[in-house]
Computed example of a mutant assay.
Amino acid sequence: MLKSVGFLVLFLLFVPSGYAQVGINTTTPLSTLDVNGNLSVKTLTLNGSGSVTLINDGVYVSVNPQATDQEFQLPSPITYPGRIYFLRNINNTNTAKLTTAAGNFFFKGLTSGGVNTLYMYDNHYRTLLVISDGSNWTVYENYTP
């Protein structure tokens, strides 16, 4: 009995608590993950097809529609709260139709007027940053007139 109590005390002393901060290239992390240096994320190119092309992998995604209004679909923001995608239409001719499996797209700062489809084309919504808030996608656009 005394051995098991001693083991429990040692275990509690040396097991880290549930709150931890991880630092990469820093000895004093100030956030849950603190990176002092460069960060690389998975990038990929998705070519459009005759059916809906699902976006379910990567962070920086180049969409390449092979015909006008080919559909690229984000996953449900409900399933992936906090998920971030950088999306860019790399085709200079064809429009990419962006949809979501659930929820709507709301442009930054708006609480009404959400839409379920966006069209990405040359000089308008060419590059988008979308972030799941757990219900919808918040859209940050890079508009070039």
Rank of each mutant, 00 (worst) to 15 (best):
70 Q>C: 03
40 S>F: 03
35 V>D: 08
40 S>K: 10
39 L>I: 15
83 R>D: 07
127 T>H: 10
80 Y>S: 01
107 F>V: 08
29 P>Q: 05
136 N>A: 04
116 N>H: 13
8 L>D: 11
123 N>V: 07
60 Y>P: 00
53 T>A: 08
90 I>R: 01
70 Q>H: 08
103 G>Y: 02
137 W>D: 08
103 G>I: 02
121 Y>W: 06
141 E>R: 11
29 P>I: 06
60 Y>M: 13
81 P>C: 05
126 R>Y: 03
38 N>F: 00
15 V>M: 14
11 F>P: 06
85 Y>V: 06
68 T>N: 15
133 D>W: 10
44 L>K: 11
93 T>Q: 08
48 G>Q: 07
104 N>T: 11
86 F>C: 08
25 N>I: 13
79 T>A: 15
6 G>C: 05
21 Q>D: 00
114 G>N: 14
119 Y>N: 14
137 W>V: 05
45 T>E: 15
8 L>E: 10
89 N>P: 01
72 F>E: 10
116 N>T: 15
90 I>K: 01
1 M>K: 13
135 S>L: 12
91 N>D: 15
119 Y>F: 15
41 V>T: 03
75 P>R: 03
9 V>G: 02
63 V>S: 02
123 N>Y: 10
86 F>L: 15
144 T>Y: 00
144 T>G: 00
134 G>H: 03
1 M>R: 12
3 K>F: 02
33 L>F: 11
32 T>C: 11
78 I>L: 13
122 D>G: 02
138 T>H: 02
50 G>Q: 13
103 G>T: 06
128 L>K: 01
140 Y>C: 01
37 G>P: 12
107 F>G: 04
49 S>M: 05
70 Q>G: 05
3 K>R: 11
84 I>F: 05
53 T>Y: 01
144 T>F: 01
77 P>H: 09
83 R>C: 09
122 D>V: 04
86 F>V: 14
78 I>M: 12
57 D>T: 11
